[in-house]
Simulated scan of single mutants.
Amino acid sequence: MINNTIHSATIEVITSFHDTDAMGVVWHGNYLKFFEKAREALFKKFNYGYKEMLDSGYVWPIIDTRVKYVVATIAEQTLQITVQLAEYENRIKLNYIVRDAITGKKTTTGYTIQVAVNAVNKEMSFVTPPIFLERFGLIT
């Protein structure tokens, strides 16, 4: 069972000038980069970073993503990105909430969906591999 406290992570990102577009707001595509940084923090928490993924024999490509922009963000704004494991059977779904670190106001939400792919034969696994479940404490 997913534990909302344990199976989540929060990071802070300070946006830079180079993160913004011609309108002076953070370019929409950068949110996927922010999501990935949060996902990395969550997976490292469970000792399943990129190296450990490869060592376990799986890669986890993103097959679906969604981003909903609620409020524009700007350069030099500190954002808190929280990621939470939402699903883990047959695929991994991670939900994201981006908030202004000072006001706590929600600026962006989204999700990513990933599937396990065998690193050697490139075949997709239709069930979540036991190594993921073990690392995340989802099986006993």
Rank of each mutant, 00 (worst) to 15 (best):
E76H: 14
L32F: 08
Y50R: 06
Y31C: 02
G110R: 01
E89C: 11
K45Q: 15
A119V: 08
A41P: 04
F136T: 02
N47W: 04
S16A: 02
P61S: 10
V67N: 12
L133F: 02
S56T: 13
A9T: 01
A41K: 15
N90S: 14
Y96Q: 12
F17C: 07
M1T: 07
W60N: 06
T5E: 10
D100S: 09
Q80P: 05
T65I: 11
N95I: 05
D100P: 07
L94G: 01
Y58R: 07
D100A: 05
G137C: 04
K44P: 01
I2H: 04
V59N: 04
V25F: 07
M23L: 10
T82W: 03
W27P: 05
L138I: 05
Y111H: 10
L32V: 05
Y88N: 14
Q80D: 13
A75C: 09
V71R: 13
I92M: 15
K33Y: 01
T10F: 00
E87D: 15
M124H: 00
D55L: 10
M53T: 12
K51R: 13
M1V: 08
G24D: 09
S56P: 13
K68I: 15
L42P: 07
I102T: 13
K105W: 06
T65C: 12
K44H: 06
I102M: 12
T10Q: 03
I113Q: 06
E12H: 01
Y69A: 10
F17A: 04
F132W: 02
A9N: 02
Y111Q: 01
Y96M: 13
S125A: 07
T78V: 14
I14M: 08
I113V: 15
V67K: 04
A86C: 12
A86Y: 14
K45L: 10
L32H: 06
S56D: 14
G49Y: 06
I131P: 03
K44N: 13
R99V: 12
F43S: 10
D100T: 11
F34H: 03
K68C: 12
I131E: 11
R66W: 04
L85Q: 13
